[in-house]
């Protein structure tokens, strides 16, 4: 794909993203009903859950791109993995920040060590490790190799972390969660949520494409610098 094509794709994604974000905001602040027991604060759920979806999906992309890199040894797969990891970690941070803001008024505390929360935190640690690893290796081929290995091992670990945490928490007392989000969503809420998911994904795909372009340009620059022997 040429740089012009990337540019056009970015513009289209940006326009679509803005459009969807506006609709999502309208849905969240105007259309959806206020949750009965939790009140207004429950609306943070429309950022929280889509962010979690994006983060998990992004880390899945890191895994797929890592496998693809090791099989093909094409650097572009490494750019995909790196870009997805960065987009994923930002979403993961969003999940970890919005979670406690929601939890404080509802459960009466900022943080509970429940399985989902703890697993998300571990997820954050794993992919911070991934980004740190990339940061501390200079040569691009080597960085791609090592990051891919860690990207695969890290992703395989995620379900095990979740299982371990779930078994661990079921054996320990937990705060009673007043009407978790599983207890039946209003159809309006469903529609609102879907808009939010669409907006969040589009926006993050836009960010991903920008990040990928940056990596592509960087490699192109290195190639040109090498040819010019500077």
């Amino acid at each position: 794909m040429s740089e012009t094509a990337y540019h056009r794709l970015s513009l289209a994604l940006f326009a679509l993203g803005v459009f969807l974000v506006l609709i999502a905001w309208y849905q969240v602040f105007v259309v959806v009903p206020t949750e009965r027991t939790m009140g207004v604060i429950q609306r943070i759920f429309y950022i929280h859950l889509p962010s979690a979806f994006v983060a998990f999906f992004a880390f899945f992309v890191v895994f797929v791109a890592s496998v693809a890199y090791l099989l093909t040894r094409r650097l572009r797969w490494d750019w995909v993995a790196a870009s997805a990891a960065e987009v994923g970690i930002v979403s993961c941070i969003a999940v970890l920040i919005t979670g406690p803001i929601w939890a404080k008024p509802v459960w009466g505390m900022w943080w509970t060590w429940d399985a989902r929360l703890t697993s998300t935190l571990v997820l954050f640690l794993i992919y911070m490790g991934y980004l740190l690893l990339r940061h501390y290796v200079d040569e691009s081929d080597r960085r791609a190799r090592l990051a891919a290995v860690f990207g695969i091992l890290g992703f395989v670990d995620v379900p095990i972390v979740y299982m371990a945490n779930r078994w661990f928490r079921t054996q320990h007392p937990q705060p009673v969660i007043a009407g978790g989000e599983g207890s039946g969503l209003d159809p309006q809420m469903w529609i609102g949520l879907l808009w939010c998911v669409a907006a969040m994904f589009t926006w993050n795909i836009f960010l991903f494409v920008q990040r990928y372009r940056l990596e592509r340009t960087r490699e192109e620059f290195i190639e040109l610098a090498r040819r010019a022997r500077v």
Binding site: D138, E139, R226, R229
Partner: peptide, 9 residues
């Protein structure tokens, strides 16, 4: 046969 290390050939 070529080997590049970053911008160094």
């Amino acid at each position: 046969l070529s080997k590049y290390f970053g911008r160094f050939t």
